[in-house]
Design a protein around this nucleic acid. Sequence first.
RNA 1: GAGAGCGUAGCUCAGUAGGUUAGAGCGACAGUUUGUGGCACUGUAGGCCGUGGGUUCGAGACCCAUCGUUCUCCCCA
Length: 451
Amino acid sequence: MSKPSLPQGTRDFNAETVRKRNYIFNTIRSVFEVYGFQPLETPAMENLDTLMGKYGDEGDKLIFKILNNGLDNAAKHQQAKDDFEKVLKGKNTKGITERALRYDLTIPFARYVAMNHGQLTFPFKRYQIQPVWRADRPQRGRYREFYQCDADVVGSYSLLNEVEFANIYATAFEKLGVDVEIKINSRKILAALAELCGGADKMTDITVAIDKLDKIGIEKVKEELVQRGLNESQIAIIEKYLSINGNNEEKLIAVKKIVGDNATAKKGMEEIEFLIHYSNQSQIVIDFTLARGLNYYTGIIFEVKAKDVQMGSIGGGGRYDDLTSTFDVPNIPGVGISFGVDRIYDVMEELKLFPEEVQTATQVIFFNLGEAESKAAFSLMQQLRSKNIRCEIYHEQTKFDKQFKYADKKQIPYAVIIGSKELEENNAVIKNLKSGEQKNLSHSELLQFVF
RNA sequence: GAGAGCGUAGCUCAGUAGGUUAGAGCGACAGUUUGUGGCACUGUAGGCCGUGGGUUCGAGACCCAUCGUUCUCCCCA
């Protein structure tokens, strides 16, 4: 047996980490609930064809596939070999793999909606907090197993949903104490830009290139556009588009000058204006270079970046007007957002944003100072537990020194000491381990004590 | 998929131009005569120096391979 290890990109979470993560989960969940979303859970694995082709070519490569069982069945050896030959040629075959781990929460949700649209009450608002898996190479802020917290509304074209999501982002990150920028854009404006610059089929080329603006700079973006087959006048328009800056109002005025004549762009700008004015959250920033990779988005798109820290996006989402049609259920529009818990955790850790209370585990330790003494302690402890006070008793009788040190290490704030004297007097010493203060309490006083 | 750095005690790392029995700090455990901890002091345990090969009289140090890990690009949460 070699040394035990973890699969690449996965992690164990110790008590401290779990508590901090739960703090994030609970905060986000409570916001979802307050906005009227219902929970949903789907399986860790999906049929491979549910996932394939939904995330683009890059995405397909990152899907974790699950090897079929029973490939060693002697009777099916030849079939297995033939199937494997296909795999070697880069094709998928059900003979080798027909299931895969969930890659995100949106597509499984779309699959769920497609399967249950007859029973659901629309608009259907669900939230989902579950892990997803990607066969990416791990690096800073990137894991192979990580949690997403998604909220989506399907069955509604109303822009009120976008407003709600902007507010959910703003509220959740305020509660977590994370200073963020909620970047928004509209795919409709990007589509209009593409139309202006060589046709709709150029949209992906253009968006992929301009998305990199803040990373590689305008010159490199122009180079990339040349490589992607755009001509000089087209690139000039894009350069003008990318030079848009100022506050949100100024940006809207500027973009109107470039794509304002286009009907689709007009719609996009109206939507952005509606969202900004209705939501009125100061964190919202228009970013016309925001594109987002997933090509199912059709309207407003969101991306959340943490300020004061170098980290990829910690949330993203947008409107997709036809997500379930790939599952043969057309005309169900939707819009949704996602929180990347693992990155939010990293950001909060780096900026030291976790409140101290998150870590309080055991509140009271009962010292073990003898058979009769510990029996009395035990009984009191059980009574405190029934009042939801988190207690434990030291596991064996030993000297004070050991018991104190144990309490220190576990950062337990209070110790209850019942020795022979207290036993005789039918009371207990309670000691605040931080301040060193201690006092004598009767049993009933102890049970009323506010920890 | 492409590239770079790093693998020495549980953790963070030293280890000098290859040269005796491999070091420190922190942590763990035990103790400094069991009714008051955090400090201090003393002691103990713990390493096929990631793995395999090569160069050499001699390798933790050099070379090759391999595995693991971290980071960058691509893409993303």
